[in-house]
Design a protein around this nucleic acid. Structure first.
Lengths: 150, 150
DNA sequence: TACCATCAGTTTATATCTAAACTGATGATC
DNA sequence: GATCATCAGTTTAGATATAAACTGATGGTA
């Protein structure tokens, strides 16, 4: 929509942003794939881990709240919970007009074992950065999400 | 999780890295979802866009090369190409023992229309950063991928 | 009481994606 | 020439994800 005449710093800015985007998504996808591998040790997928981690953190929440926290649809939550329920890791209790979800003992045991491991693993992706760089990075990300959210 | 008193900068570093990870993935997922919406205008998904963009860029490549560039499996490429072929956007030519993929005229027209749009859109996610911050960000990402790749 | 909005969760259809098994062609080695 | 490994692409089964239609309960309002 914009033809700048004198070669535009806009164009250069866009080019820079594009490079960022491509690298950003490559890094993200690679990380997810590594996590997938890592979680196989416990026979879990990343999606399942996210659910377990979120329930463990909040102790007890409705399916709708869970969907909202994980930024996925209610339908997706239904499917994921069915599997986790079958595996005996979570429990659903109808409660008035909502269903509360919580971890079973088996689920809690898994939570306490896997979550610290996985968090250490995820954190390790940023080992290449020193403290100051990490703070810089987080700062930039915050600027981005401030913009994305609104 | 944190009883700070004198204690380990390691723990703090891990905590920082975790915050980065969560924000990183939230931003990424949000961006992808927005792209998904944006691409609906052209009846395309993100995966299909990536394929079209990559073929348009390279003019002609084998399915294996395509899989490698997009960091997905050969099986996935087979599935994606079947749809795009059916839609008349790409062409597959058996050539010795490989299949070369290229854009049809219809595919080329779409490519020329959608790619600039979409790139502008993806780039716009980083509008919140000024030039210097973009450069800083890219620099940090490069450090990360240098580590991740090897 | 009858009607109707809304709301939580489910279902269904469709698209991605992987891993692993499979197919068929190429080409090396005996 | 027969056998075998390799390699590109396909197929299949299973997990994830969405959107959109559906179900059933709650609760307001006429």
């Amino acid at each position: 929509m914009e033809h700048e005449c004198g070669t535009s710093p806009d164009k250069r800015d866009e080019r820079l942003a594009l490079l960022i985007w491509y690298r950003f998504s490559r890094i993200y996808n690679q990380s997810v794939r590594e996590s997938e591998q890592h979680l196989k040790t416990w026979d879990m997928t990343v999606a399942q881990f996210d659910v377990i981690a979120q329930i463990g953190l909040n102790k007890r929440l409705t399916q709708g709240q869970l969907a909202e926290k994980l930024l996925v649809t209610k339908g997706n939550i239904t499917q994921l919970l069915s599997r986790l329920e079958q595996a005996g890791l979570i429990r659903r209790e109808q409660d008035w007009k909502v269903k509360h979800v919580s971890l079973t003992d088996k689920g809690k045991a898994l939570y306490e074992q896997v979550v610290p491991m996985q968090e250490r693993f995820q954190a390790s992706h940023f080992d290449a950065l020193d403290r100051e760089e990490k703070e810089q990075f987080l700062h930039l990300l915050k600027k981005l999400s401030a913009r994305t959210t609104e």
